[in-house]
Structures are given as structure tokens and as C-alpha cells.
Amino acid sequence: MRMANFRSSYGARRLALGVFLLVLLAFFLLPHQLQTMFQGLGGPVGWVLSWPLRMVASVEDGIGSTWHRYLALQGVEDENRRLRKEIEQLEGQNSQLREAASATERLTALLEFKAQALPNMVAAQVIGRNTDNWYRTIILNKGTSDGIRPDMGVITSAGVVGRVVKATLATSVVLLVSDPNNAIAGLIQRTRDEGIVEGTKEGLARLKYIPLLSNVRSGDRVVTSGLVGGFPRGLAIGTITRIDKEEGALFQLAEVRPEVDVTRVEEVLVIQSPYVAEEEPLGDGLPAVKGKP
């Protein structure tokens, strides 16, 4: 049996009640203005808080890399041999693809789609994960000072990761593609049918609004359509694993396995602008990546 608190005076209690009611009332009356104000004030706070986050993330990385380098060496030699073979094969493929990319670039320029295919990107590192149970998010070590803004698309070399929903001076929050509150315009690569990709409760994704007459099937790849949002056309989202065709429904629904394992992603690219300005130099045909994590 323990004694509870009796120290707060009556005035403090009234003040607390007043402050609480005032905050509630203010958010009820001016929700957008207050959100913007607090988000603005949060910029420097986010910068300060990003330092302990970065420190803990680097310690975590250090422990992880120690584990992988020194303790989990079983089978590394075999894996190394296999990877060397793969590199040789990929180098061959790479030179062919460079040729193809060069031809594609010329054709794309001719079709005036050049800008769409080569977005501006900034590299960022994951320093934290979802702080609550309601949303699937990751926290990046880049923020508004690096040019990151809400609604920008986030990818890895494998495909789409999600989109930025909040940004402070030095950090940003990315809502993952597997979150039910996220929606990305998608396209079935084989059939060219468009739809909306949203996350599911199970941590996968689904493609909605597929036309009934579409001959979509399991194994079809889904890519970004580039119509809306911060993604250019053609980035991999996932692979269709199941089709739901309900009696009397206006559209088909497909379950999609995301291309990127969002639970393990460590470095990402944030697409600052899916459309590069005409006068911006395009270099050797590779996307312009600003900075490194």
C-alpha cells in the first residue's frame, strides 16, 4: 500500500484543466494552422532529437556489422564464390543493358519523356522505425534542410518503399508501401491496367480497381504508373500473388507481395522530383543522386 500524490495545489489543478481545454479547443477550431505551426516549431526539435537517434542507429549498425563480419561467418566462402560468379554474369548483362539504356535514352528524349525517366534523388539512411502501433513507418536521417518534403516518393534499387509524410530539419518520416493508409498509383506491367496500390493489415499490399475484363494473373509485376504522387513511371512495386474476383463486383482485386522487404531496408533514395527540369544536365544517363547517407 503506497501513498498517492497530494502535492498539487487547487490553483495548479485549475490551471492544468484550463490548459488542457484550451489545447483541445484550439485544435478543434484551428486544426490546420496549429498543425503547421507545431510542425514548423518541431524543425529544430527534430534536429536536436535526430542526434541521439543517429547515435543509437550507428551503435545498432556497429553491433549488426560485428555480428555479420565476425560471428556469422559460416558459409561465407561458398557465398563469396557464388556471388563472384553472379558478378561476372551481371557485368556481362550490365554492358548489354548500358547499350540498351543508351538507346532508350535517345528514344525517350525523342518522345519527350526523358525528364520523367530520370528523377532527382537524395540518398538517406534509416535511423528509426515506427514509433507507434498504428502506422508502418521508417525514420530517415535527411530532412527539409536536404530538400526533402512531404509526398516525395522513397525507393531502393529493388523498388518502391513508401512516401514521405512528415519532415523536420534533419529527419523525415516515411509511410511504408505496406501500410493500409498508403496509396500509390500502380500499373500491371503485362496488361497495362491501372489501379491503386494500398497496404494491408497483414503487411502486404493490394491492387484495387483492376477492370473486370483484365486478364491479370498471379506472377504479374506491378509498377508505378507515374500518374500521381512522387514516383516516375515504371518503378517496381511488387508481384501479384492472388486475384480476388467477387461475384457482382465492378472491379478485381489483387494481392501484391511488395518487391522491397520493408522490414529490413537500411538505405533508401528519396525522389525529390520525378520530373527533371529541361536545362538540368543528365550526366551519363544514371539518376542524379545528391549526397550519401
Binding site: N5, R7, S8, A12, R13, L15, A16, L17, V19, F20, V23, F38, Q39, G42, V45, G46, L49, L53, G128, N130, T131, D132, Y135, T137, I139, K166, T168, T171, V173
Partner: peptide, 20 residues
């Protein structure tokens, strides 16, 4: 007490919402 509980709660809620 209420006042400190409220103020700490508001500050923590604000700080956590920046990363959520």
C-alpha cells in the same frame, strides 16, 4: 500532479508526433 503530468504529456506527444 495534474499540471506537470499534462505538460510533460503534451511535450512528449508533440515530440513523438514529429517521428510518427
Amino acid at each position: 500532479g495534474e499540471l506537470e503530468g499534462l505538460l510533460v504529456g503534451l511535450l512528449l506527444g508533440w515530440a513523438m508526433s514529429l517521428f510518427s
